[in-house]
Write a protein that binds this DNA or RNA. Sequence first.
DNA 1: ATAATAGTGTCTCTCAGACATTATATA
DNA 2: TATATAATGTCTGAGAGACACTATTAT
Lengths: 244, 244
Amino acid sequence: MYQTEQEYLDNYRIQNYDIPLLSIDVAIFTLIAGRLHILLVERGSFPFKGAWALPGGFINKQLDENLHACALRKLEEKTGVAISTALPHLEQVETVGNAERDPRGWSVTTLYMALIPYAQVKGFTDTVTDARWWPFDEAKALSLAFDHETLLDKARTRLKNKTAYTVLPIHAVSAPFTLTQLQQAFEELLEKPIEKKSFRRRILSAELLEEAGQGLPEGGLGRIATLYRPAPGCGEHTFVWSLG
Amino acid sequence: MYQTEQEYLDNYRIQNYDIPLLSIDVAIFTLIAGRLHILLVERGSFPFKGAWALPGGFINKQLDENLHACALRKLEEKTGVAISTALPHLEQVETVGNAERDPRGWSVTTLYMALIPYAQVKGFTDTVTDARWWPFDEAKALSLAFDHETLLDKARTRLKNKTAYTVLPIHAVSAPFTLTQLQQAFEELLEKPIEKKSFRRRILSAELLEEAGQGLPEGGLGRIATLYRPAPGCGEHTFVWSLG
DNA sequence: ATAATAGTGTCTCTCAGACATTATATA
DNA sequence: TATATAATGTCTGAGAGACACTATTAT
């Protein structure tokens, strides 16, 4: 039909094709008072107007350099977290597509999962009126928009699995923190207790933390604890063991 | 604007939105004479006409029930493998999207990875003229269409990682097989030798194999080996250890 | 002192790696 | 017999779980 690639491209119109709708959804987790919470937004427009949903939306070809940047933009819009600040963990979980999940027809969404320390976003999310943090179990009991209950489960499963073999929960606590605080974060995400000595042995021998002074434990009672912060460059090469 | 969800849906036209192109690509791996190969197709149309690429294409809203089914359809079209037959492993790897990967503009592709025994597809792929099996290293040296060199790496990495903690390579050998054959498959996918006794201990204690008679080793020389086939329901709950 | 929390010592059990040894087939 | 491959025996060291014990703080 066309003789050259340039000629083909000049005549290409995406509107001529019957393509599915594509969106991005982000399951944003944090720990509030030690318990797992997730950020949900109340939908202000159709479809599912008024229902709670994961933050998400469409790719903006002008604003978003790539898929990850698009997810990061959603994360920032809802949490006010500045990219440069600290350690907002953001990773792609799975892409789901079928004819049933959206009443507008065959649609595809790429699910991301984020984990951030509450201290870093509390000020902002408190001021946002259409979004709020839900304890995870309560969120699961809501009737969410689209197939977001399924997406919630997928994100939660990823969170749990990675906690068993990486130091992912480090992204849920603000530095500096005690090893006990970090262990409690691990236990909440893993949904089971961890033996203290084993935890300390592994987390310290991994050399992913550096000391950051000393401080009293939460509650102000007990022996002074050593404080830690993530070591520089502890980014993602954090896979070594198998917990639980 | 609209008062009810139904009214909104009645007036919804996807063509009114500026959405990116969405495709599916499948990295299909097999072992030929013990070496890792990947199936590539020579593109017959623009863009990248004449270049080698991963099998893939667009979702067909009528034919495809969901994303996985779409990937399965691509797999079947190129390999002739019947879904019902045996164990074609197919899993989603990652979704990539940006403005550069496709000259037609901002585009998104969901990458799948498949692993099948060569014996199951040899007859069919031999007859297909626009597709051929490439040794993995040679494929990497080709100049592939789009960002398929990157995709190839992502799929290869997933293959390698999962080999370390699942029995994924079981999908690369035809039953019945000897433990030595299975070990060689593991070693090729893992790119390093495995200690024989350790391998046998773990693979047998996982109880994912059942005995399937006895046979001479390849080459016809040596002690009679026990043959095995995957145990029914060894599907995917195959994660237990950490090899290497 | 007492309660509370931080941090350590150390035993045991499991299991991977290493490697020697035995068993059984063909030529 | 020699050669090749299958399959097992067993020692060692690393590390996780268990749990008792010591150390240090506030009240």
